[in-house]
């Protein structure tokens, strides 16, 4: 376990060997018109294949951070670089997922999955990607559901289709905005394990924002705590549980200790 104070060197031990994929340096955001200081000097370095979890209360500036990271908002200050290229707008090497599956009810599963291709490269290209889409649906355990409309899917199944849609463009980094918090507890645990398996299989680099400390701990290599007004990344905890993680680990003393440590950090910082 290693805890750094404020994130001056936000790359904890164990990850330093791998190449940096996504880097934020001194990112601040002020909404001038409303005079809101949303983010203050955010530094982040995501290494290839790593999983970074962020814990923050509502209104800690995490939506602003995700919007900046996904190229929807420009920072007021600082630099955002993905794979060596500055992020100055939406990019296909960024995959994003929300709390809601956000599937379109007039499209079948497979049509929802290839939507990002259709938007960027047209209908022809989307049709050519149907095989890749089917393979992804199989990867998340939805073989045979290609032609099914979203209203016939359960919440967990719909989120799995959303995962496939995020993965179809083969993104370098996955931005996950509380992806499973609308699911019931049982589905959520299951989906966390699915997500871990998919990330391992694709060697994906992931950035997860969540309200759930156990979820962050079971999934992440590193968990940071975000505090509000202005949003900043506080303490960072390395999760030294072995991989692959299992749900059984949640009952181990080490897991409990990590959860307790992160909760302690939150109590100090987040609700002041």
């Amino acid at each position: 376990m290693m805890t750094t104070g404020t994130a001056q060197s936000p790359l904890p031990a164990g990850l330093s060997g791998r190449p940096v994929v996504y880097e934020l340096r001194g990112v601040s955001k002020t909404y001038k018109r409303r005079n809101v200081h949303a983010l203050e000097k955010i530094d982040l370095r995501l290494t290839e294949g790593s999983f970074w979890g962020i814990i923050g209360s509502s209104g800690c500036g995490k939506s602003t951070l995700l919007k900046i990271m996904s190229g929807l908002l420009s920072p007021s200050e600082g630099s955002v670089v993905l794979s060596g290229k500055p992020v100055t707008g939406p990019r296909r090497d960024i995959g994003m997922m929300f709390q809601q599956p956000t599937l379109f009810p007039w499209r079948t599963s497979i049509e929802n999955v290839v939507l990002p291709i259709e938007i960027r490269d047209g209908k022809e290209a989307a049709r050519a990607k149907h095989d890749a889409g089917r393979a992804l649906l199989e990867l998340v355990g939805l073989k045979g559901f290609e032609q099914v409309y979203p209203n016939e899917l359960s919440g967990g199944m719909a989120q799995r289709v959303a995962i496939c849609r995020m993965l179809i463009t083969e993104p370098t980094v996955l931005l996950l905005d509380e992806p499973f918090s609308a699911l019931d507890e049982l589905s959520r645990d299951f989906m966390d394990m699915e997500l871990q398996r998919i990330c391992k299989e694709l060697n994906a680099t992931a950035f997860l924002v969540t309200h759930s400390i156990p979820e962050a701990v079971i999934l992440s290599d590193v968990v940071s705590v975000m505090s509000p007004r202005p949003g900043r990344i506080g303490a960072t905890v390395t999760i030294d549980l072995p991989r692959p993680r299992t749900l059984d680990m949640m009952t181990e003393p080490r897991f409990g200790a990590l959860v307790r440590e992160i909760r302690g950090l939150l109590d100090k910082g987040a609700f002041l």
Binding site: G89, P90, R92, L115, I119, R120
Partner: peptide, 14 residues
């Protein structure tokens, strides 16, 4: 259309 759908379309570069 809800906020998330709009945001999703923007991230897809629509």
């Amino acid at each position: 259309a809800d906020q998330n759908s709009r945001m999703l379309f923007r991230t897809m570069g629509a």
